[in-house]
Design a protein around this nucleic acid. Structure first.
Length: 513
RNA sequence: GGCGAUUUAGUGUAGUGGCCUAGCACGCCACCCUCUCACGGUGGAGACCUGGGUUCGAUUCCCAGAUUCGCUACCA
């Protein structure tokens, strides 16, 4: 009864890995690790028409970035290889023949055009027991003709012969026993001679069997074809070792209806791919979580909770904690709308956990993008700036908006703040402030604050007006960290220079904006 | 259309035949903190799909319907 847990993530290299696929991979990984099992990566490239160069590398790099570690598979070794289905033709041929010999499958010559015609002629046409005897296949043609056609190079497919009239049960760990009648299944194509490759269904069953996969954990879109897979295991005589199935709920659009798509990301402004993707055919670039400033631990944490919970109110969990707590007992069965706003919150949270030096390193490229050479500042300066403003960011790039004034003198002043805080008497007070700042022995935040505040009070000035004018002059708008923390970092000279500059710029009736 | 799955606040979810005046988080609002913006703290608005049935009692069990999603390819 004790079976080694072996799960697989088996994407098609038809493009960048979708965030829903990432979650499927994650759940596979969490389940495997929780049970001390193995995680395999299999590339399902049986549709040569849809192959996209670079997709496989993209998938591998994505999983690596996210910390989903593969034990066996493409790019990771293992003794059940090859793990790329296009390299397993010899294996599939054997099993196709086995089904053919056992009369569980047959050869069909119907062309796509003929099938289309049949569908057009008969509403709800299905290639199954009710129609197969009127089609061009090895069931309706003399063996001689079949052989001749094949020898002549005629393209054909192998179809699974499904016997009608029997209930097929899929035992799903999440949904219980799902039963359907075999009648609704069609005689699925298992193999195409055109490219000497099986279709997903055959390859999937053969590989899962050969790779000793114990649990098939995949998206809900596979549930309808799971009975077919059960029948296939049966036809091969592998029912005893058939894996357990788990069909995960899908990730849905945040607003409207339907499955989450790339379009939704573009429309609502969030990535649907882990890494930035450059489409080789169109040249289009799709944004990725990594390039958008998300931390992998935030993405993992966020994704894990979209359809699963630990059974209590815990929300912040590292990969190790997720592994420890994960089980399908707490998986939901219904599709989850992709709540990307919460994803931002997770990122905010994980950003706060980072130490300032590390965050500062991540900030440097952003500085460069904004025309600031970070090498002109000490690492300590940047780290201290980051430390002061990080509480208000969701992404590393937000740091620029919050901290630009630490690197650039304000070029303009927020008009609304000017109107509210910069009155006719302000320049005189600011001039006075400059004197006070010059008089300070110690310009540190701690030492400077009290004397200045005392001065404001003693003079009977309005605290808010003076401090905000001060802030306006130094920052350019009424926002940012504690005022004296700012001036300490900027230094006395620069702080005073900015106040003087503001006095000059704002003395006319038409302030610079 | 057929088949299957699904259904707790705007969103992600917890939970139970009576302890539920249905918990938590994101988002939203207010207040506090405060020189500002944030952070943080406190509080607030906001949900058991509908209709039957079972039961002393149902959000929780049963049935029906509706909803939403998926599948219905020589795509995965």
């Amino acid at each position: 009864m004790e079976r080694e847990v072996r799960v697989r993530f088996a994407p098609s290299p038809t493009g960048p890995l979708h965030i829903g696929g990432v979650r499927t991979a994650l759940y596979n990984y969490l389940f495997a690790r929780h049970n001390g099992g193995k995680m395999l990566l299999r590339i399902e490239d049986t549709d040569s028409n849809r192959f996209v160069p670079g997709a496989e590398e993209y998938i591998i790099e994505s999983l690596k970035w996210l910390g989903i570690n593969i034990d066996e598979g493409v790019g990771h070794g293992g003794d059940c290889g090859p793990y790329r289905q296009s390299e397993r033709r010899d294996i599939y041929r054997v099993y196709v023949k086995q089904l053919l010999d056992a009369d569980r499958a047959y050869i069909a010559f119907d062309t796509p055009e003929e099938l289309e015609a049949a569908r057009a002629a008969t509403p709800n046409f299905q290639y199954d027991a009710s129609t197969r005897m009127s089609m061009r296949n090895s069931l309706t043609m003399p063996a001689e003709d079949v052989k001749n056609l094949i020898d002549a190079g005629e393209k054909y497919v192998v179809r699974f012969k499904i016997e009608p009239g029997r209930p097929v049960v899929v035992d799903d760990l999440l949904r219980g026993k799902v039963t359907i009648m075999s009648d609704i299944l069609d005689d699925k194509v298992l193999y195409k001679s055109a490219d000497d490759l099986p279709t997903y269904h055959l390859a999937n069953i053969v590989d899962d069997h050969l790779m000793r996969v114990s649990h098939v954990i995949r998206g809900e879109e596979w549930l309808p074809s799971a009975p077919l897979h059960v029948l296939l295991y049966e036809a091969f005589g592998w029912s005893d070792t058939m894996p357990s199935f788990v069909h995960l709920p899908l990730l849905l659009k945040p607003d409207g209806k339907g499955k989450l798509s790339k379009r939704d990301g573009d429309r609502l402004g969030f990535p649907v791919f882990p890494l930035e993707w450059h489409d080789p055919a169109s040249g289009n670039i799709s944004s990725g979580y990594r390039e958008s400033g998300y931390l992998p631990e935030a993405v993992i944490n966020f994704l894990a909770l979209l359809g699963w919970n630990p059974g209590d109110d815990t929300e912040i969990m590292s990969m190790d904690e997720l592994i420890e707590k994960f089980s399908f007992d707490h998986c939901s069965r219904s599709g989850a709308k992709f709540a990307y706003e919460k994803g931002k919150w997770f990122n905010h949270h994980y950003l706060q956990q980072l130490d300032d030096a590390r965050l500062a390193e991540m900030f440097k490229p952003v500085l460069r993008d904004n025309g600031v050479n970070p090498d002109e500042y000490s690492d300590e300066y940047i780290a201290r700036v980051v430390g002061l403003v990080k509480g208000r960011i969701n992404f590393v790039r937000d740091l620029w908006e919050q901290a630009a004034f630490f690197f650039k003198t304000p070029e303009s002043y927020d008009p609304k703040a000017v109107k509210k805080r910069w009155s006719a008497e302000t320049p005189a007070i600011m001039t006075e402030l400059i004197d006070r700042l010059n008089a300070l022995d110690d310009f540190s935040s701690q030492a400077a604050e009290q004397p200045i505040l005392d001065w404001i009070t003693a003079k009977g000035y309005h605290m808010g007006n003076v401090m905000n004018a001060f802030r306006l002059a130094v920052v350019g708008e009424c926002k940012g960290p504690h005022m004296f923390d700012i001036t300490e970092l900027l230094g006395r000279e620069e702080s005073i220079r900015r106040i003087q500059l503001a006095i000059e710029r704002l003395k006319t009736d038409e302030p610079a904006v």
